[in-house]
């Protein structure tokens, strides 16, 4: 029994979507590393202009929000409906703080006249982080819908596939940032 193969959590379709998203981000990451080989001095120079503090805080916020989502999934499996949506709201607060810090970071760059055309480093930095930012917004909309549905008693220990599906997507958003943060902000 112990070695029995488990089913993927959530709706199977979300895993196809997650894989497609990971492929796109993977190509972005590999392209960044390869293009950097020809522009090492430029990449190292402009990387110093990034705010590593907000980058690190944002990583902790996303990890913590993922932890809350795990707690929400576990709670609904135990039919603890109130705890389930409380944990999802906690995850949403972390996601909201992430967006606030990221918006501040973008505002800082845009007000300094930095855009996609500035240079190759900023092209990668802005494309990757804005693309990820949009995924955070989408993930938060999904989580909010799940929290509202849970609050209305639509999920239970018998029916929690929606919570698992939204959770899987949110973890993917976290996973991508786990690679993005050291790659763009730290490694030189």
């Amino acid at each position: 029994m112990k070695n029995e193969t488990r089913l993927l959590p959530g709706d199977f379709a979300i895993w196809i979507f997650i894989f497609a998203e990971l492929l796109v981000f993977g190509i972005f990451f590999i392209s960044y590393a390869v293009v950097r080989v020809q522009n090492i001095d430029m990449f190292n120079h402009y990387q110093l202009s990034l705010n590593r503090e907000t980058g690190a805080i944002n990583t902790i916020l996303l990890i913590t929000s993922s932890y809350f989502v795990v707690r929400a999934v576990r709670a609904i499996k135990l039919n603890q409906i109130k705890q389930c949506y409380h944990f999802i709201y906690a995850a949403l607060i972390c996601g909201g703080l992430f967006l606030v810090l990221k918006t501040y970071e973008f505002q800082d760059k845009f007000s300094a006249g930095i855009s996609l055309d500035t240079n190759t480093f900023y092209m990668f930095y802005l494309s990757l982080t804005i693309f990820h930012y949009m995924h955070v917004i989408l993930g938060m909309i999904i989580l909010l819908a799940i929290a509202i549905k849970a609050q209305r008693g639509k999920y239970s220990s018998q029916d929690y596939i929606g919570v698992e599906t939204g959770g899987a997507y949110w973890h993917m958003v976290d996973l991508v940032w786990i690679i993005l943060f050291p790659l763009i902000y730290i490694i030189r």
Partner: peptide
């Protein structure tokens, strides 16, 4: 060190948060 650290973090998220432990 940084990539191994990111790899471990990614592995933990996939295995424990996304619950890939034991799937096909």
């Amino acid at each position: 060190f940084l990539i191994i650290s990111a790899f471990i973090k990614g592995l933990l998220i996939m295995r424990e948060f996304m619950e890939l432990r034991g799937v096909s």
